[in-house]
């Protein structure tokens, strides 16, 4: 790790006045790392990038001690506020969340390791950079780092964990498996910058490579995620999340899915189905959602929705096997969510 200056911010106002750059910009090949100042929360992703020598900021602003951002607050019908510094472990343990947002607590408890969950924050998790092996390797200056090539889509390249949808420009999947569930619940992120506060649906906060391959979201310089708001689910909502990896102990998702369903009189009235590790952003499976509306939830309808989930997939050389996996886990998650 390079040497850097350390500023321990004590308020959001100070933090957003430190002339910080989003990490995505600090990592560009032509960026001047010696002048970049970045934010760090739990540090799991920041230190990983720095140890791999793909990020070398001159100054780090620690936001771990900002006040009030580490609470989970139920605001009644307005929803539930999750402060940006809430750790994954806090989310995992929260009884109310477990009751009302089961898919989220499932996602959190299957993310990373217990030790990582104790340190990693919600804001940092949403902001983590992709785990494409080429992107994280200092020897490869790929498109995402401001280079001219995508190494993952060359013949023979290592892309078995990459995207099967929306993968034509850059096929790195988003690393936040928690965002899969957050998007399914219609979460909104609150962003605070020097000029004030804005709120954006998380789904729209993420940016596809076609819009800008060099970043995964639309955070601005000096801007912090301060809060994530989860709308209150309607009565009769059921949800489930399944993460599929090659290993159960902990593993990056090969495929994950969050399903949030509303049912009335035995029929599905609203469905939110989001695929993780399928595309460069958490992806709503609109065709799968449409396949369920107006239908009862059963093996047959769930299977049909599972098949529909990856409609239009364009697998790469080594990842076509993800298609049937998505079909299976979407089906299973729908059936579980429908049990409520």
């Amino acid at each position: 790790m390079n040497a850097f200056q350390w500023t321990d911010a004590t308020s959001v106002k100070q933090a957003t006045g430190q002339n910080t750059t989003p990490v995505a910009d600090a990592m560009l090949v032509n960026a001047k790392p010696e002048s970049a100042t970045i934010f760090k929360a739990g540090g799991v992703d920041v230190l990983d990038l720095m140890k791999e020598h793909v990020l070398a900021p001159a100054r780090i602003v620690g936001i771990g001690n900002l006040p009030k951002l580490d609470a989970i607050r139920n605001a009644g019908k307005d929803g539930t506020h999750l402060g940006a510094l809430v750790t994954l472990a806090q989310l995992e343990r929260d009884g109310d969340l477990h009751k009302s947002y089961r898919a989220l607590t499932e996602a959190v408890s299957h993310a990373a390791t217990p030790q990582v969950r104790n340190a990693a924050t919600l804001g940092g998790n949403i902001m983590q950079r992709p785990h494409c092996w080429y992107f994280r390797n200092e020897n490869f200056k790929c498109l995402k780092k401001g280079g001219t090539v995508c190494f993952a889509n060359q013949p023979g390249a290592e892309n078995k964990y990459h995207a099967i949808l929306g993968n034509q420009t850059c096929s790195a999947v988003h690393g936040s498996s928690i965002s899969t569930a957050l998007v399914a619940f219609g979460a909104q992120v609150e962003l605070t910058g020097p000029q004030g506060v804005r709120r954006v649906p998380l789904e729209q906060f993420f940016v596809t490579p076609e819009k800008d391959v060099k970043r995964e979201n639309s955070i601005q310089p000096n801007e912090l995620i301060t809060d994530v708001l989860l709308p209150t689910p309607a009565a009769g909502t059921g949800s489930w999340y399944i993460k599929f990896g090659e290993r159960e102990s902990y593993d990056w998702a090969l495929a994950d899915v969050a399903v949030v369903l509303e049912q009335q009189n035995g029929r599905c009235t609203k469905a939110s189905i989001v695929l993780g590790a399928a595309a460069p952003v958490p992806l709503r499976a609109a065709a799968a959602e449409a396949a369920l509306i107006g239908k009862p939830i059963n093996e047959e309808t769930a299977r049909a929705a599972g098949q529909a989930a990856t409609t239009g997939a364009t697998p790469l050389e080594h990842n076509a096997y993800k298609v049937p996996i998505f079909a299976a886990i979407v089906k299973r998650a729908i059936l579980k969510a429908g049990e409520v």
Partner: peptide, 13 residues
């Protein structure tokens, strides 16, 4: 940024 100004949802901030 700043186009939509509002107050934070964080209590007591």
């Amino acid at each position: 940024a700043g186009g939509v100004l509002m107050t934070s949802g964080i209590a007591g901030l």
